[in-house]
Design a protein around this nucleic acid. Structure first.
Length: 508
RNA sequence: GGCUCGGUAGCUCAGCGGUAGAGCGGGGGACUCAUAAGCCCUAGGUCGUAGGUUCAAAUCCUACCCGAGUCACCA
């Protein structure tokens, strides 16, 4: 396997006044699996953070009796804790209120202005004060706010703002989409954006003057939150100064987003980058939504089921990570329930994987005092040869489910090998050579599993590694670690507790 | 309403012109190293509905039904 060019992946920055839910966990976990896989092949970097500007934040702060800064400072820790709870390891966490971000935003604004892409204009429209939203005339209902829960009268608002000449980039964007079908995946989102581009783009207001919780502009007013938010992906890399060389090394990267914000990431953001003569994101992937079982109503129990912290408490981060990426193709919506999670946990993780480790090490202990026999080449070494490339390719293409399917083929192969070769009979019959060969295949096969599974289940994969009696952790370069025979003869294994103890359904 | 994606075995999905597949659940069997786990066998679903094209359609076309998304400054 060849080393890859530096890899950079981002999650969206989370809106600070929101509440962490399973969707945030989903994006976070997917990004973590991507970057852990990439780290096994070369330099890799992952970014997450919080989006802290905007009128809603200002209002919420006022309601809480705090200044906006105090307010966001009080909320930031709970977002910073999110990734660690799911065993996700990011290299950086950026807050849009940090000076490094402000500096970058203003530099980008200047660059775009110098290019002639930013001009002063009047931003006006029908505004609903309660919803803080501008509505197009066509959407108004009897001259009132179209939001069914609002229906308040709207007012004509007009403010002098900075505009971005987005229309200028309409044709180049269209050409870029056509030339790079993989720029935005999955297909359905790509089609939607193409439709928008074909309809034509209008210029876009990038500042606000009606409130002041945002990045202040020299001439007055603040940057519009979305304009500011998107820039986090490069401000975290230190653009434009790039004192640490991160921007030069890692940009462009790939963005992992929820499907609802595809337009910002694949139309507005690329246009902003072009305007500043910077490279476009390499790829954008918009994943699906997670719903409750049945999709619709979220009752109290289901509400709990959707609480990622409770799920981690019951099943552990590794099992949740596994479930989210194995249950459905990445990109489509799917539903989650405690029953399904328990099912996957017991079947795939407990029965197939956990029990494989347990039965193998138990036999090694019984027949060989727990010492790994001499390496041998057999069917397993042949089967395993193509696995790293298959897994890596699937992960790179965000086919997490297929990657896990491939890995589970190895789990099944090892389980089958035991049943077919019946080590207990080999032992009774004194066929030591065959027994040794099988036991080695099992141990070495599980060492490969440990390495391959590390990106998906860092904690349990490390537990496998340790029970095999290996030093360190399974986090290592695949090119070095995934060589058959890497497990040394004579290694003293030390079987431990079951990896995934069966979880019984609550008594009805 | 326009556009997009999807509607395949109980569940989650693959197949995308040549006489229906996988995993899980369910049923049966032979074992015992193991978390009563694993292994082997099995499920007969008019592939949303109605037409059409074709020697041949789940797979192409048309209409319709159902679900989801999106239609621009709402993170």
């Amino acid at each position: 396997m060849s080393p890859s060019r530096p890899f950079y992946v981002t999650t969206p920055i989370f809106y600070i006044s929101g509440t962490p839910h399973i969707g945030h966990a989903y994006t976070t976990i997917a990004a973590d699996v991507l970057v852990r896989t990439a780290r096994a092949h070369g330099p890799a970097r992952a970014l997450t953070g919080t989006d802290e500007h905007g009128q809603k934040v200002a209002n919420a702060a006022a309601a809480a009796g705090m200044t906006p800064q105090e307010y966001v400072d009080s909320l930031a820790p709970r977002w910073r804790e999110l990734a660690p709870v799911f065993d996700a390891r990011f290299d950086d966490f950026i807050r849009t209120t940090e000076p490094r971000h402000v500096t970058t935003c203003l530099a980008l604004f200047d660059r775009m202005r110098a290019k002639g892409d930013v001009y002063e204009g009047v931003y006006e429209g029908w505004y609903c004060t309660h919803d803080e939203t501008f509505w197009p005339e066509a959407k108004l209902i009897d001259g009132r706010c179209p939001n069914a829960e609002c229906r308040r009268p709207v007012q004509w608002l007009s403010e002098k703002n900075w505009f971005f000449r987005l229309s200028k980039y309409n044709a180049p964007l269209l050409a870029h989409f056509r030339a790079n079908p993989d720029f935005l995946r999955p297909q359905s989102r790509y089609n939607e954006m193409m439709a928008l581009l074909e309809e034509g783009l209008e210029d876009f207001s990038i500042s606000r003057s009606s409130f002041d919780w945002g990045i202040p502009l020299p001439g007055g007013g603040v940057l519009y939150v979305w304009y500011d938010a998107l820039i986090n992906y490069i401000s975290a890399l230190g653009w434009p100064d790039d004192a640490d060389g991160l921007f030069a090394e890692f940009w462009p990267g790939m963005h992992l987003i929820g499907k609802e914000i595809a337009r910002f990431h694949t139309i507005i953001w690329p246009a902003m980058l072009w305007s500043a003569d910077l490279p476009l994101p390499a790829r954008v992937f918009a994943h699906g939504w997670i719903t409750g079982d049945g999709g619709l109503k979220i009752g109290k129990s289901l509400g709990n089921a959707m609480d990622p912290y409770l799920l981690v408490e019951e099943f552990g981060a590794d099992a949740l990570r596994y479930f989210l990426l194995r249950e459905a193709p990445f990109g489509s919506d799917f539903s989650i329930s405690v029953d399904k999670l328990r099912q996957r946990h017991n079947s795939d993780l407990g029965n197939d994987l956990g029990n494989l480790l347990r039965r193998s090490l138990a036999m090694l202990a019984k027949y060989r005092d727990g010492l790994v026999p001499e390496p041998s080449d057999g069917r397993v070494s042949e089967f395993v040869a193509d696995l790293p490339v298959l897994v890596r390719d699937h992960v790179s293409a965000l086919r997490f489910r297929e990657a896990l399917d491939e890995i589970w083929n190895l789990v099944a192969l090892l389980n089958r090998a035991i049943d077919e070769q019946k080590p207990w009979e080999l032992h009774k019959a004194g066929r030591g050579v065959e027994l040794d060969a099988l036991l080695y295949d099992l141990c070495e096969g599980m060492r490969w599993l440990s390495v391959l599974l590390f990106p998906f289940m860092p904690t349990k994969s490390t537990a496998i590694w340790e029970q095999l009696g290996l030093e360190g952790t399974p986090e290592r370069a695949w090119a070095d670690a995934l060589v058959w025979g890497g497990l040394a003869a004579g290694t003293q294994t030390n079987p431990g507790a079951p990896l995934f103890p069966r979880i019984e359904p609550p008594a009805a």
